[in-house]
Amino acid sequence: MDFRWDLIVEYAPLFLKGTLLTIGLSVAGILIGAVLGLLIGLGKMMRKKLWALPFRWYINFFRGTPFMVQILLIHFAVVPAFLDTTNGILAAILALSLNSAAYVSEIFRAGIQSINRGQMEAARSLGMTHGQAMRYVILPQAFKRMIPPLGNEFIVLIKDSSLAALIAVPELMYWGRAMQGQYMRAWEPYLTATVIYLVLTLSLSSLLSLLEKRLATE
């Protein structure tokens, strides 16, 4: 089998642009998804069942339907309904953030609820308000426990961003498919994309394990 390195070199600038967009989509999805997930997690933990219901169903919807359906629905139906035109990048960021928020909210909730009840009691017995106890005692501990599952979720998000190619967002996978279309070759474009995705996800996981080590308490 001949392997056409020259084709990869030819496409390198496009792969680079695609990679940068993939990173951009992922970072936006991670940040917006994390903030949104936090709020939805808190919403679902509300004592009043009725108030928690919309949050519960938000999670049900985004966890219970395929990401591909979500991104197509948002791109071809939701965004045009508001903007009267399609916008691939906006739709991709929206879909990634909204989807990720559903998973992050459950990670967030599990993290908080995994902290021993005694921690809250000790903090309250010292005169702290509920908010102070959350901020200084519960959340810092919960956050540490949330890092590994959050890492998982962010890696899934990076990989899911490849589905943006379906709505013609020129990210990494889009250029892989373009290259295959142009030269009718499969190994070169998809192996290149494979290696780049691996570099991205491995960088993220080593970053997170570094963070985890820094937060270690013997």
Binding site: N116, Q119, E121, A122, S125, L126, L215
Partner: peptide, 20 residues
């Protein structure tokens, strides 16, 4: 109640120190 609690110290069976 927070002010009152700050004047009543409590020691628990499971210590409940803040591990972080």
């Amino acid at each position: 109640i927070n002010k009152l609690r700050s004047e009543v110290g409590m020691v628990f069976q499971q210590f409940n120190l803040f591990p972080h």
